[in-house]
């Protein structure tokens, strides 16, 4: 999990100060704090709760309502391993496992250095290229244990 550094806490406090007197400030505050930290863990929500004098339950309710907010950090790159039927039988699952082993993350998690967020997807319609993998906006065909790390090396 990514640590909230002292510098980040300082920025969070500045944001809270700036919006303190404004009504309806919660969503912009959350947006800006997420820009600072990359995500909104409980401790950040608690700090905002004290600062704006809004109950923590209300803040948690807002964070979980809007799809822009996340309570787990997002990596700089997103890997989506296709597990549609064709990809599955051609080794998509083995590919997923090799990424999990290499980086020590599970599905829907992010590596400690925030390099990758990992997820699987249902069919992406590239069955002829199976097994397929999507990194950010790039689709890769015939991914295998032999080439998978080489592909990911291109994303720092």
């Amino acid at each position: 999990m990514k640590e909230i550094t002292l510098k980040m806490w300082k920025k969070i406090d500045d944001i809270i100060q700036r919006y303190k007197e404004k009504s309806g400030a919660l969503i912009p505050v959350l947006e800006e704090c997420q820009d600072v930290c990359g995500y909104l863990p409980m401790e950040v929500q608690e700090r905002i709760s004290k600062g704006l004098n809004i109950p923590g339950s209300t803040i948690y309710g807002v964070v979980t309502f809007y799809s822009f907010f996340t309570m787990v950090p997002k990596g700089r790159h997103t890997i989506k391993v296709c597990l549609g039927t064709a990809c599955y039988v051609r080794g998509g699952k083995a590919n997923l496992e090799s990424i999990q082993d290499e980086f020590g993350v599970e599905k829907r998690e992010t590596t400690g250095d925030l390099r990758f967020s990992l997820d699987s997807v249902r069919c992406i319609g590239a069955c002829g290229m199976a097994p397929a993998m999507v990194v950010d906006d790039d689709t890769y065909a015939q991914v295998s244990k032999q080439n998978i790390m080489k592909i990911l090396d291109g994303y720092k």
Partner: peptide, 26 residues
Amino acid sequence: IYQGAGAFVCGEETALMISIEGKRGM
């Protein structure tokens, strides 16, 4: 300008106003 935070239902008028007030846009 008030930036939405990704909820389709906030296009509904009362939800949109509640969202500007900083709450769950319902």
